[in-house]
Design a protein around this nucleic acid. Structure first.
Ligand SMILES: [Mn+2]
Ligand SMILES: [Mn+2]
Ligand SMILES: [Zn+2]
Ligand SMILES: [Zn+2]
Lengths: 171, 171
DNA sequence: ACATTAATTGATAATGGTTATCATTTACAG
DNA sequence: CTGTAAATGATAACCATTATCAATTAATGT
């Protein structure tokens, strides 16, 4: 429980297995005046390596394995910060809990939208927009901005339906 | 507390002040095998006359005024049914509680999307650019259906930003 | 009108994700 | 190394939504 052992082990382990590929996130984080801690670093690592949309508890459990000192509260707090900064996107897919995902980076993951299966709750990312989709989106945003005097910061676009598996099962 | 008085008063009052303009909803409701009760009728009335997006408690309070027997549980249950039937849309605007809105009817309200102000939580309906938007949406949906073998049933499109008032206040 | 019966109801308690508290620990500028 | 504000985690509280269940009621047939 002393920070020593876990800290030493944690740091060394992290420096090897983690702490890669999100220097940019670190920069953004500290640039905003936030302190970088082991917990926060681990959370960023988990998010960076996630291939699905994680809940706060998902993240907590993954972080716990490498950093047992972590508390669920800190996960929520860190996610809150990350969402406010814009480094992480928070989604509600109707599963009763929020899901988080690393936001697009300069030369990292691209912006995308979601297909949500109402049968099995799976979520599919898609970013292969038709060029037209982007064009109309921009056009719509501009028109709306003017008509409603509304400054659009971002958008949420989700399609609900049934994935192949669920459709075959007749759910 | 006896059903008599409230029932009689309620019915008469409702027949005058309410119970208009949503015969279609009633039909849909009963056609699905659900029974029409005073509470459910009052809920439909409140939804039909709402000019904003109501929470379950909003609805409860409005119904309570004309039908004090109503229970919050029944509001939730009825809304659940209405959402499942497709007569009502349930939204999460990030306010911590679900918001409900009567769905589009054959010759009633039109389908629309939302502008959500992150400053004051106001929500603006817009259906202006829907035609063009819908055309491309359909196109996008078709492309996605094929590529991901995903049957799209409906979509959620929201734009987040700042309304005029909040922008001026520098929130 | 009346009896029958399954649907519906509302009071109440429980659930569960998220937040607030607060004493303790820690990152980091000086 | 020190001082100090930021960050943490254990814990309790919050609060929207659900589950439970006995009582009521709408609808159907007589
Ligand atoms: Mn995604
Ligand atoms: Mn609306
Ligand atoms: Zn599915
Ligand atoms: Zn506003």
């Amino acid at each position: 429980m002393t920070m020593e052992i876990i800290c030493i082990n944690g740091v060394q382990f992290m420096l090897r297995e983690y702490g890669k590929g999100h220097k940019w996130c670190h920069g953004q984080f500290k640039a905003r005046g936030y302190r970088m801690t082991l917990g926060r670093e681990a959370i960023l690592d988990v998010l960076a390596q996630a291939n699905r949309h994680l809940s706060a508890e998902d993240i907590f459990m993954k972080v716990y394995k490498v950093y047992p000192n972590i508390g669920l509260t800190s996960v929520y707090r860190t996610l809150d910060i990350l969402v406010n900064i814009g480094l992480v996107h928070k989604f509600d897919f109707g599963h009763g809990r929020a899901r988080y995902e690393l936001a697009e980076e300069p030369k990292g993951r691209r912006h995308h939208h979601h297909l949500v299966c109402t049968g099995c709750s799976r979520v599919i990312d898609y970013e292969d927009f038709i060029d037209e989709e982007v064009a109309l989106l921009k056009k719509t945003e501009e028109a709306l901005s003017i008509k409603y005097n509304f400054t659009i910061m971002n958008h949420l676009i989700q399609f609900y339906g049934l994935c192949q598996i669920c459709r075959n099962e007749g759910k």
